[in-house]
Write a protein that binds this DNA or RNA. Structure first.
Lengths: 111, 111
DNA sequence: CAAATTACCTCGCTTGTCAAGGTACTTTTT
DNA sequence: AAAAAGTACCTTGACAAGCGAGGTAATTTG
C-alpha cells in the first residue's frame, strides 16, 4: 500500500460527501472532480470509491437512483441526505481538530 | 474503529519518529508524550505502538537497545537513524501537501 | 473497425488498528 | 502484609478500508 493511501483513509467518505453538497453526482464525475481539484494528486481507486458509496448509503448519508440517460452509459446518481450533511459537518470539525493535533505532534515546535 | 483513528492512520510512524528527534526514548514514554502533547486527545494503543516500532525498525528508521535500569521495569529504548530522519522530513512535507489537498477538497471554497 | 472513453461492479489480498490477553517488577494504598 | 495501581514490555486474532485485477456494456474517436 502506498504511503498516500493510508493518509487518505478516514477522509474518503468526507471527500465524497463534500462533492455532493451542491448537487447530485455520480461515481465517475465525483472521481474526476477529486482529481481535478487536487491537480491529479488524489484519486479514489474504483474499488475504494464504490465500496465507500455502499457504506455511505447503508449509513443513510446518501441516497442513490439511476439517471435516465437517453444516450451514453447509465449512471447511478447519489444525493446527500440530511444525516449526511450532519455527518459531513461533524467530520469537518473533526478534521480541524486532528489537523491541529498532528501539527502539534510532528511540528517543529516540540515540547 | 473510531473516526479519528482512521485519520491518524498513516501518521503514526511520523509521530513516533518526531518523538525521537531530540533524544532516544522508549514505548511507554513516547506514548505518554503523545498523550500530553495533545491534552489526552490522542493516544496510541499499545498494539498499534509496538507493531509500529517493529515496522520502523525493520525499515531501518529506528534502532533499539535495552536500557540498563538498575531499578524498575526494563525498557527498550529506540533511536532514530539517518534514514529515519530523512523519512521523517519527507513525511512532514507529505503532510503539508496532504493538508492542503484535503482542505481544498472538503473546504468551503468549492469549485 | 479498433481503440479509447464513459460508466458501472465484484472479489480477494494486504495492511494498520485494536481489543484482549499475557508477563514481570515496583510503588502506593489499605 | 496483602491488594491495588502503576510502569513496562509483548503477542494474537479479528476487523475494516484501500486497492489491484478482473469483469460488463455502451458510446465516441481515430
Amino acid at each position: 500500500m502506498s504511503q498516500t493511501s493510508d493518509i487518505i483513509r478516514g477522509h474518503t467518505e468526507t471527500i465524497i460527501l463534500s462533492r455532493l453538497l451542491d448537487h447530485d453526482s455520480y461515481g465517475y464525475e465525483i472521481n474526476k472532480s477529486i482529481r481535478d481539484l487536487t491537480d491529479g494528486a488524489f484519486e479514489a481507486k474504483e474499488g475504494t470509491l464504490y465500496t465507500a458509496f455502499r457504506r455511505l448509503e447503508q449509513a443513510g448519508y446518501i441516497r442513490s437512483y439511476w439517471g435516465d440517460e437517453s444516450s451514453g452509459a447509465r449512471r447511478r446518481y447519489y444525493a446527500i441526505t440530511d444525516e449526511g450533511r450532519a455527518f459531513y459537518d461533524e467530520s469537518c470539525r473533526e478534521w480541524q481538530r486532528v489537523k491541529t493535533m498532528i501539527d502539534r505532534l510532528i511540528g517543529t515546535e516540540q515540547a
